[in-house]
Design a protein around this nucleic acid. Sequence first.
DNA 1: GACAATACCGACTGTCGGTATGTATTATCG
DNA 2: CGATAATACATACCGACAGTCGGTATTGTC
Lengths: 193, 193
Amino acid sequence: MATKREQREQTSAALRTTARRLFAEHGYAHVGLETIAQAAGVTKGALYHHFSSKAVLFRQVLADVQNEVGEQVQHAAEAQPDPWTYLVEGCRAFLTASTHPDIQRIMLIDGPSVLGWNDWRALDEQSSARLLTEALTTLIDAGTIPRQPVEPAARLLSGAMNEAALWLAQSGNTDADRDATMTALTRMLTSLK
Amino acid sequence: MATKREQREQTSAALRTTARRLFAEHGYAHVGLETIAQAAGVTKGALYHHFSSKAVLFRQVLADVQNEVGEQVQHAAEAQPDPWTYLVEGCRAFLTASTHPDIQRIMLIDGPSVLGWNDWRALDEQSSARLLTEALTTLIDAGTIPRQPVEPAARLLSGAMNEAALWLAQSGNTDADRDATMTALTRMLTSLK
DNA sequence: GACAATACCGACTGTCGGTATGTATTATCG
DNA sequence: CGATAATACATACCGACAGTCGGTATTGTC
């Protein structure tokens, strides 16, 4: 039929994608493991064979989401010619990606609450936040912006973008709002210079 | 013995303060209503007589916290002579107040997850976020900063401060980190000009 | 081909949010 | 002042759900 490794990867992937869909749609607290297992075509026993707890499953799902966003950001950024537009376009890409409601609920709303801020931040650092600090460091080394503590600036910018994404995703916000936000954000970035 | 109104207010206050302490310490999801009720010296029946659900109790607690922070910010800000330092010192006060771990867990971590971002933002708007938009509007009207969309700028700044507060509250962060953050934040504020 | 490991199932348990019912105390009103 | 209503709780209970455990079937190993 199939090798164990294939089997394992297949069920695990099915559970992760199913869980991701349901977590994104209803929120972590309002989705039961029984529901996830059934929707993935297995039982709760199988789920617990792959993930030792509900939180661990969520953590995996969050990591998937983070990596996806990180890739999108990196892809958009590395197409840019110089470090400065690398930063600006990376930020724009992050804002675009994380405005998706599905991404938000998992990455920005439930993430910190379920895993705790420390753990959440560690995951964030592995994907998109790392790109931000790297970009800032590059700009400092290149002399584009003055030497300054990178960490605080990165945290401030990261928080600003997270909140902006949540706001933009609210119904009633238009493309004009998006443009205005990007304008204000660009001004913030320029303040680093 | 006591009038009904007194009795009511007393038990409600006891439940709110107890719940606040426990929510702050362990997080919303890890505190049972039975625990809260017992710690407040009543039963779960009493709790449900005052609050129709766990989420409603949390909402009340969050409102209390928000108002407290809002008052601290306003108090610090209105002591300032001009609108600009009003803004800067208000931001500093917010950062100080929301760095308290007890405040954080309720206001910044669990709040959006439990109530949903919409509802959370509505409460935020009633207390501290309102002060921010008002300050920006005043500065625009006074001509200190150019006319620009207030909402996006306010959201970006609010998010930046929230995240910075969470970061600063992590163990291992010093007064120097706080100063560096405040410096970077001030630079951001100056970018509005 | 036997033994071991793995993937998964299904029934069970404890905890917890929420409800329903009962009771004592205070307010209201004729 | 006495009866009725309303309020402030307590207690017992239900359903849902996260997590556990023993068992089974399939695959890998020697």
